[in-house]
Design a protein around this nucleic acid. Structure first.
Length: 262
DNA sequence: CGAGATGATTCCTG
DNA sequence: CAGGAATCATCTCG
């Protein structure tokens, strides 16, 4: 019967924490803000822009977290002093041992730290979601620029017999297309597999680029080609260096042999 | 909106 | 580990 005064006190504390501290406007607001920061992954233009966007959102989450943490800290302290005052008041009507006070304080702190853990966890979750949204490149896939595709296709179709660019070639292409080397690798991987899966579908494209390289080759060796064009077909006897020009010149006349690979 | 195109990822093999 | 194959997730276009 004597212990009852303390238990209602505890109950009230629990209720207050549960009602106001945790599920009150504070956490709700925080969670909503975090969710907003996470969800607002709109259309990013550039890689750099997206990255800074990502960092901004990250720091936003971090700031929300710290704000909330501070709030809880403050609320915890306030509540502790409040309870202490109540206990002190009660100590006039009944003896209150230091042990009991300590127990109360411990309970309060435990409660608050569990809330903080919850906050921490939800913050971590938000960060993970943010990370996965930004890091999973499939989610933000952008087609390469027309120009880049042009360059890649040009290389592909002018090396149809061996469409495997060396590491240096890949770097070169990457530089020209303003993409990464692994993107170049991806592109060639995709292109090879898709080309050979349906060569017919790519015939038009192949001719187009063959003609295109022929034009550039013609420009490069204008005089020579002009003279030999009417005469004999270019002799494909030379090595890889002049292959560009020879294939280009011969392709100019008709179909490029797409069956030579695979 | 839906089908095809396309860049990226995953899994597997030599 | 580079490349092939299958698959995913998004983009583009009618």
């Amino acid at each position: 019967v004597d212990e009852d005064p303390s238990d209602p006190q505890l109950m009230r504390l629990d209720n207050m924490l549960l009602a106001e501290g945790v599920s009150g406007p504070e956490k709700g607001g925080g969670a909503a803000a975090v969710a907003a920061a996470t969800a607002a992954v709109g259309v990013g233009a550039d890689n750099a822009i997206e990255h800074s966007d990502y960092r901004a959102k990250l720091s936003q989450i971090r700031q929300i977290y710290h704000t909330e943490l501070e709030k809880y800290e403050q609320a915890c302290n306030e509540f502790t002093t409040h309870v202490m005052n109540l206990l002190r008041e009660q100590s006039r009507t009944r003896p209150i041992s230091p042990k009991e006070i300590e127990r109360m304080v411990n309970i309060i702190h435990r409660k608050f730290s569990s809330i903080q853990m919850q906050l921490k966890q939800s913050t971590c979750e938000a960060v993970m979601i943010l990370r996965s949204r930004f890091l999973d490149a499939r989610r933000k896939r952008r087609n390469f620029s027309k120009q880049a595709t042009e360059i890649l296709n040009e290389y592909f179709y002018s090396h149809l017999s061996n469409p495997y660019p060396s590491e240096e070639a890949k770097e070169e292409l990457a530089k020209k297309c303003a993409i990464t080397v692994s993107q170049v690798s991806n592109w060639f991987g995709n292109k090879r597999i898709r080309y050979k899966k349906n060569i017919g579908k790519f015939q038009e494209e192949a001719n187009l680029y063959a003609a295109k390289t022929a034009v550039t080759a013609t420009q490069a060796v204008a005089a020579a080609v002009q003279n030999s064009q009417t005469n004999s077909p270019a002799t494909p006897s030379s090595g890889t260096h002049t292959m560009n020009e020879t294939t280009g010149a011969s392709c100019h006349k008709g179909y490029i042999s797409t069956t030579m690979m695979f």
